[in-house]
Write a protein that binds this DNA or RNA. Sequence first.
DNA 1: ATCTATGTATACAGATCTGTATACTTAAAT
DNA 2: ATTTAAGTATACAGATCTGTATACATAGAT
Lengths: 187, 187
Amino acid sequence: MPILSKRESIISQALKLFYQHGFNATGIDRIIAEAGVAKKTLYNHFKSKDELILAVLRKRDELFRNKMMRETESLGKTPRDRLLSIFEAHHLWFQEPSFVGCMFINASAEFSAPEDPRHSICAEHKRLVREYIQDLAKQAGAENPEALSQQLNLLLEGAIVEAHVSGNKEAANQAKAMAKVFVNLAF
Amino acid sequence: MPILSKRESIISQALKLFYQHGFNATGIDRIIAEAGVAKKTLYNHFKSKDELILAVLRKRDELFRNKMMRETESLGKTPRDRLLSIFEAHHLWFQEPSFVGCMFINASAEFSAPEDPRHSICAEHKRLVREYIQDLAKQAGAENPEALSQQLNLLLEGAIVEAHVSGNKEAANQAKAMAKVFVNLAF
DNA sequence: ATCTATGTATACAGATCTGTATACTTAAAT
DNA sequence: ATTTAAGTATACAGATCTGTATACATAGAT
């Protein structure tokens, strides 16, 4: 029994390549070469490249939110602290050498039509991140958890774009300072 | 003398297609068909697709910032008003049926490497937008124009992403409400 | 009027893309 | 032991991609 199933190897390698080089720029041949599988194996598990892309985006959502929530909860003790430690978790992410922005923002750039299933998954991911923040805000006892989560989420998105497009690795700290203002106003 | 030179036609059509469908997904053949020119004409003006992409991004920067500054200054009377009317100008942009996010964020998604010239132009565009905000902040007499422009810029970026990825067409208004807090704190 | 620059139309080279087909191998289950 | 499922390796079809080549047309400037 291998550590990773063939299917998992394909998704894992495709995730790396799609994230680093983009979706349209990454060919199937490159993916199977890096994953070390035959082309037929890939098409045995996924009936098309688009299906693989959907599977990769679902995997990324799972991995990203799990890591983000784990780090946020490790960096902040109380729910209210965690409203700010989200930004610290993002700061750590921005420092990673492989950081090239948010995969879902990037995917939305290549698949712009909102009705495209590949775009819908991106919107869904963003909704789940915002709902996590809303849960924290509710636990913290904020007066309007939805409004606060909307505000903090918008700051996070701005920081991600600043960090990637402009290479501003301090964007998360700047966003955190701004977030403090809204957290303080929310109680 | 035609209304648009061949070169301008090519750039104009390429801009529409690149913006709507992405850079890698848009082929040269499609561009020349829409522009109504021969392939040799395109390669007479641009020595490669990459050069055309650079020319398109420069043109987009010019058109976008001109329009944004014009609308901002039409919607706001004083420099301080204009620090907020930027968000109104963005709101109008988000309502356009053809809106599919910021072309520079989208380009950065496809050309992730920061040293890629196509990425550099995106960073440069973002710098120029932020400098415009900084100028307004300076004219308005803000205590720390650079810090304020950094804050407002981050809010704008967040709104653009929210509007495109999540389809939240009210993102600019939400960002504007947040911006008011920082503008009020800045004097 | 003739030369030059610029354009059109089209074919094509060579690479790369997605997806399928073929033939062989291997390992597990009955 | 034999069947079945899943994998490998490779070739290939058919489309599309960037960029070049060829042959011809046209309009302006000298």
